[in-house]
């Protein structure tokens, strides 16, 4: 309920303040288990991807985010879990006996759709960094779940890391063809990287120095 109200508001704000140019929206998974993989530039990334989904399906869509950031205080943790619907992942875990991806496995087993940012951090806006391999473990465990790459541009300009002032920009959201499990993790990561480099070269983006 709270989540629906929050994301209705987000939807309106995203449409009015930002404005999205979405290519191939129909490729977004309509049912789980599935994994949406996106590049990460801004807190807006999750908001926008959630805003693209129909409100009725929000409870089955789970952004995966860093526990050390989103669950750092009880209040933040409550908001992250109940309003944003986040699944926490430990980025730096001392305890090696617990698999940090356990929450993700569980959600996929329950036919949920995960939203994952394998860059690990928002980093410098509008610059992609190396992809972390976590996602390949998920794909290996659930080889039938489609992995859908989504490349976004402009959100890091609108709200970069370290800023609280939202400046309106039109943003591009390019959805790519889903990747099916190729048989091993290295091959999987390679095709994911390949897919992202294709999507990011679909348009000449205005420079932002």
């Amino acid at each position: 309920m709270l989540q629906k109200a929050f994301y209705s508001f987000v939807k309106i704000a995203v449409l009015f303040l930002l404005g999205l140019n979405v290519r191939r929206k129909d490729l977004l998974p309509s049912k789980g288990p599935a994994i949406i993989v996106a590049n990460h530039n801004s807190h807006l990334d999750t908001m926008v991807l959630m805003a693209l989904m129909p409100l009725s399906r929000l409870k089955d869509i789970k952004p995966v985010a860093a526990a050390d950031y989103f669950f750092s205080s009880p209040r933040k943790a409550w908001l992250s879990e109940h309003v944003l619907g986040i699944i926490p992942v430990e980025r730096t875990s001392a305890d090696k006996s617990v698999d940090p991806l356990e929450g993700c496995y569980e959600a996929l087993a329950q036919d949920r759709v995960l939203i994952l940012f394998p860059e690990g951090s928002r980093g410098k806006p509008e610059q992609m960094t190396d992809l972390k391999k976590g996602v390949s473990y998920l794909a290996e465990r659930f080889p039938d779940a489609p992995v859908v790459p989504v490349f976004t541009h402009g959100l890091g300009k609108a709200l970069p890391k370290g800023s609280f002032m939202l400046v309106p920009f039109f943003c591009d959201i390019f959805v790519g063809e889903p990747i099916t499990w190729p048989g091993n993790r290295t091959q999987f990561m390679d095709s994911l990287k390949e897919r992202f480099s294709q999507l990011s070269s679909e348009k000449n983006f205005a420079s932002w120095e």
Binding site: G19, P125, G154, K157, F169, F170, A206, S207, W208
Partner: peptide
């Protein structure tokens, strides 16, 4: 204006100015 600012090269330092 949003369309214009989205398609021209802009500077990070000017975010406030755009605002």
């Amino acid at each position: 204006l949003k369309e214009y600012f989205s398609m021209i090269p802009t500077r990070r330092a000017d975010r406030r100015v755009l605002f």
